[in-house]
Design a protein around this nucleic acid. Structure first.
Length: 938
RNA sequence: GGGCGUAUAGCUCAGUGGUAGAGCGCUUCCUUGACAUGGAAGAGGUCCGUAGUUCGAUCCUACGUACGCCCACCA
């Protein structure tokens, strides 16, 4: 019989199909919520507008898309809310760099308004390439709802949140030590600082006592024995940052440190600066470290800052915004304007010249580095805006404690708690231009009827008009607005009572707006339908490295403003590493570009690989060979479909999988149902690798390897009823396969779905299968297990006795084993075909010189007298016998243990006994076979 | 200093209180009527070590060893 011509090519032309299929989906409106069924909502972790797709994005968005497609097919009203983040520092950096390349005027020369406009232009032209890259991956976001954190709507949400938190006293302005980035000249948050161990030095300086005073310096060992005693006229301090000594306010020693007791309360002459500072006692110094005496630079070190505050020491700011030495009354002229590192060299040289350099040690120093700028961060004493994170964290901690939000894997809640329990005030102001300008206006502070020249009043409001109103009430007259800081300061300085307002120049940390993402993108503060339907969102999918940056802050803001958690589940996926287990990065040059893989193997292959590797709780090492392997899997499915098509396996809507006659069809329906159940349960539990693995094994190792091979003779045969049933069953199974694989391999499955049968709609919105108990058929499954087992056993024996793969050989069933007889009755033909048998006969005893196969206690003989190598055959049987015997021994040992029989669950004992019976039957037959072999040799 | 994680086949990794698996690689064979991006068979493991809990431990507990990550850090 001649097979039908397939419309499918030999392999899937993904390059040709992907864009076509994608626009088909988009045009069909499938990406929009259906409005029917329960809502299922995911907000995308907004990529930076400057970003381009890396492996982390590919994984993150593949997993989201799998969930989204799964739930969409399950009939939910699905929204995957897309958008981008304005990425303050990163974007400003990119645009400034571009301006420099173009030779355009510098940002500071062109002014704020022009620069911001320039950034917007850049965004329109070059921003957001990542969106198209996500589409190439197959992401089924509702692009009609795409949002940007700087959109008018989201900006309004930001202003409203800021104002309300300010009025709730959860946002305030404060002068504290912040992490200052001298490259970008802005404050950054603790999270944006990376500590890096670098080579540095430990300088030991002598600070001479005032008026040449001296004291007995005594060092003792642990036993109290004096190890050093000398008269000193100085105190020794050690520092990794010599230049900061110019801003020292004191030298601190520990109260328990006997060495310095004689001089506590006295003063030392601060070298180079030529001023006197006290020696104080504080718990901060560690007597066992360095000299035990610490110089205190309150304005440039976080620990020193605490000490300085406790002791009301002066905090001398010695650096400017560029981290250059700042002119002031305590700064010696010669250092003014020097960069901090030049100043360091100069200070060391000068100390040395003064004979006060005791020694220099090499030392690993932890340096705080700006994550964007890569430069050493400087602690600086500045005025900034802060969020009282401690207060907002309370309900966010409670929500995870009581399970309203759960982390998957659960372990991550510990990381979350640990950070939230120790949370510090969140510095939200940035000295940048690109971002949400803080809605606060400064005006002169009233002191009675006059202005206080040292202070100002702050008016926080969502709009300038509103700020004016509030200010008018304060001043009892309508204030003016100053357009520039200079104008403002000039008006303020002229002393006249003429109220003028000037808007805060700082913008907000980008994460401040990202924190609102789950509700700002849905329209808040407007009461939109989308907000009502899709908040709280269902699942957040993200990597652990932004739990602090983003997840925690969304929890805080969501609970504060929506009074509900922003998401029920937080699925934390792995980080992607290269094949050697190293973090991928552009600078290391080990980054694999996901789009290159998409070009090479197709988006489906990459997606399937990522899903298959996404086991919980472990990082992923990406290797191209895996992608290749899953590309092959796609080809396998493609060709199976092609084969089905050639054999006219047409999908029939009224096919009834519970009314089948042929056992192989009953069996494959059973297996299909099991596979669907496994995939469904795995996806519900975010076990992507289990879901992918189950589908993979079913398609390849069950459907292709066995079912289609069983079906071949039927397709070629002339039993029209069985042929029809098998064709329909094949189509039905394939239909299920396409559905189950669609979330993982959307492009190929959609393409096959369209080619295999004319149908209404697209696979993307087809209904996810829900197998009924009646699809299961345990006896068919057991029967086919036996058949497959026998075929495998024959193949093994053939291979081991070197029967040529093409040769057809006779087989003899020995005795009248009932299972064997029954199975051969219904499956004899397919066994013969797949085991390459010429004939099957029955006999009472094994013919002389035959190879013997023992399968489930039944004996089969391959009478190949003369062909068989007796020694090899003996070895083969002995090996099997050995296996079975050791199994029996292990079982006997267990069953012989009275405690096991008495205490183990009944079912386990019963099962153990029945396993023993199976092995025992096998052993008896193998022993018999072995004996016959011996008899042959004589 | 605090927290988390990992150790299973040559490699990369699943997994389970009772019977240890996959992919890749390797060996042998096969152009059998979809698929060589394929098919068949095979070799390969002290489940890191020690002790404990248990009838039974690769799995649970403790300790140890090795490696990795996060947070905080010695000026």
């Amino acid at each position: 019989m001649i097979m039908a011509e397939p419309t499918l090519q030999k392999t899937f032309d993904f390059a040709q199909a992907e864009s076509r299929v994608y626009s088909l989906w988009e045009q069909s409106g499938a990406f929009k919520p259906s409005g029917q069924g329960n809502p299922y909502t995911v907000v995308i972790p907004p990529p930076n507008v400057t970003g381009s797709l890396h492996m982390g994005h590919a994984l993150n968005n593949t997993l989201q898309d799998i969930l989204i497609r799964f739930e969409r097919m399950r009939g939910k009203s699905v929204l995957w809310q897309p958008g981008m983040d304005h990425a303050g520092i990163a974007t400003q950096m990119v645009v400034e760099r571009q301006m420099k390349e173009e030779g355009a005027p510098k940002r500071t020369d062109m002014g704020r308004e022009a620069f911001v406009e320039k950034v917007w232009n850049w965004k329109e032209q070059s921003g957001g390439t990542i969106i198209n890259q996500l589409k190439r991956l197959g992401a089924s976001c509702d692009w009609s709802r795409e949002r940007f954190t700087m959109d008018e709507g989201l900006s309004k949400a930001v202003r409203k949140v800021f104002v309300q938190l300010y009025r709730d006293k959860l946002i305030y302005r404060d002068k504290r030590l912040v992490n200052w980035d001298p490259k970008f000249q802005t404050a950054i948050s603790d999270l944006e600082v990376i500590n890096e161990e670098r080579d540095g030095h430990f300088w030991h300086f002598k600070y001479p006592l005032e008026n040449g005073e001296t004291y007995e310096y005594v060092e003792k060992d642990e036993d109290g024995t004096v190890t050093l005693k000398e008269t000193r006229n100085y105190i020794s301090i050690a520092t990794t940052r010599p230049e900061t000594m110019l801003g020292d306010g004191a030298v601190a020693v520990h109260p328990s440190d006997a060495r310095y007791k004689p001089i506590v309360g006295k003063r030392v002459l601060l070298p180079l600066a030529d001023r006197y500072i006290p020696i104080i006692e504080d718990d901060h110094p560690d007597p066992d470290f360095g000299s035990g005496a610490v110089k205190i630079t309150g304005a440039h070190d976080f620990n020193d800052y605490q000490v300085a505050r406790r002791h009301h020491l002066p905090m001398h700011v010695i650096l400017d915004a560029h981290a250059r030495m700042l002119a002031s009354d305590i700064m010696p002229e010669k250092y003014v304007g020097l960069d901090r590192f030049e100043a360091r060299r100069q200070v060391v040289a000068d100390i040395d010249a003064a004979g006060l350099l005791e020694k220099v040690e090499d030392k690993k120093v932890n340096q705080p580095i700006g994550d964007r700028s890569g430069v050493v961060i400087e602690p600086m004493l500045t005025d900034q805006w802060y969020v009282n994170a401690e207060e907002l964290a309370k309900p966010a901690i409670a929500a995870v404690k009581d399970g309203r939000t759960r982390f998957i894997p659960e372990n991550w809640s510990k990381t979350y708690f640990q950070w939230m329990d120790n949370i510090e005030p969140w510095c939200i102001s940035r000295q940048l231009w690109w971002g949400h300008r803080i809605p606060a206006w400064y005006g002169p502070k009233l002191n009675g009827d006059a202005y206080d020249p040292e202070a100002h009043e702050i008016f926080v409001a969502e709009t300038e008009a509103e700020a004016m109103e509030i200010a008018a009430a304060y001043y009892h007259e309508k204030p003016k607005i100053a357009e520039t800081r200079e104008a403002f300061l000039a008006l303020k300085a002229n002393g006249k009572r003429e109220p003028v307002l000037y808007r805060e120049e700082d913008v907000l940390d980008t994460w401040f707006s990202s924190a609102l993402w789950p509700f700002s993108t849905l329209g808040w503060p407007e009461k939109t339908d989308a907000l009502a339907a899709h908040y709280p969102t269902s699942t957040l999918v993200t990597a652990f490295d932004i739990i602090f940056f983003w997840v925690a802050r969304m929890m805080m803001q969501g609970l504060h403003f929506m009074e509900k958690v922003p998401f029920g589940d937080v699925y934390i996926h792995a980080l992607i590493l290269d094949e050697k287990g190293q973090k991928m990065s552009k600078s290391k040059g080990n980054a694999i570009d996901p789009l290159t893989l998409v070009d090479q193997y197709g988006a489906d292959a990459l997606r399937f690989t990522l899903a298959a590797l996404a086991a919980q709780g472990r990082n992923i090492r990406m290797s191209e060979s895996r992608v290749e392997g899953y590309r092959n899997f796609g080809t396998k499915l493609w060709n199976a479909s092609r084969f089905a098509q050639m054999n006219e396996c047409q999908y029939t809507p009224d096919y009834d999988p519970t009314a089948l006659h042929d056992v192989i069809n009953q069996w494959i329906v059973h297996e299909t149902a099991s596979c669907v159940d496994t995939v469904t349960e795995a996806l519900e539990a975010y076990r992507f690798n289990d879901a992918a693995g189950a589908a993979y094994r079913f398609v390849w190792n069950v459907f292709c390897d066995w079912y289609l091979e069983f079906a071949k003779p039927l397709f070629m045969g002339d039993d029209e009823n069985r042929k029809t049933e098998t064709r329909q069953t094949t189509a039905w199974v394939l239909d299920h396969i396409l559905k189950v694989l669609h979330p993982f391999m959307p492009f190929m499955t959609e393409e096959l779905w369209a080619n295999l049968a004319p149908r209404d709609g697209h696979l993307i919105t087809a209904q996810w299968p829900t197998p009924a108990p009646s699809h299961k058929n345990a006896s068919a499954a057991a029967e086919l297990d036996w058949v497959i087992g026998l075929i495998s056993a024959v193949r093994t024996a053939r291979a081991e006795i070197n029967v040529p793969a093409g040769a057809k050989i006779p087989m003899v069933i020995i005795g009248d084993n009932p299972t064997a007889m029954r199975c051969f009755d219904s499956h004899g033909d397919r066994i013969s075909k797949l085991a390459r048998l010429k004939s099957v006969e029955t006999a009472e005893s094994v013919p002389a010189g035959a190879a013997q196969i023992v399968h489930s206690g039944a004996v089969f003989a391959l009478p190949l007298a003369g062909v068989i190598d007796i020694a090899a055959e003996t070895a083969r049987l002995d090996k099997e016998l050995g296996k079975v015997t050791s199994e029996i021994q292990a079982i006997d040992k267990r069953l012989g243990n009275e405690a096991f029989v008495a205490k183990a669950p009944e079912a386990v004992v019963t099962e153990t006994r029945s396993r023993r019976e199976g092995f025992e039957a096998q052993r008896e037959e193998l022993t018999g076979a072995r004996k016959r072999l011996d008899d042959l040799v004589g």
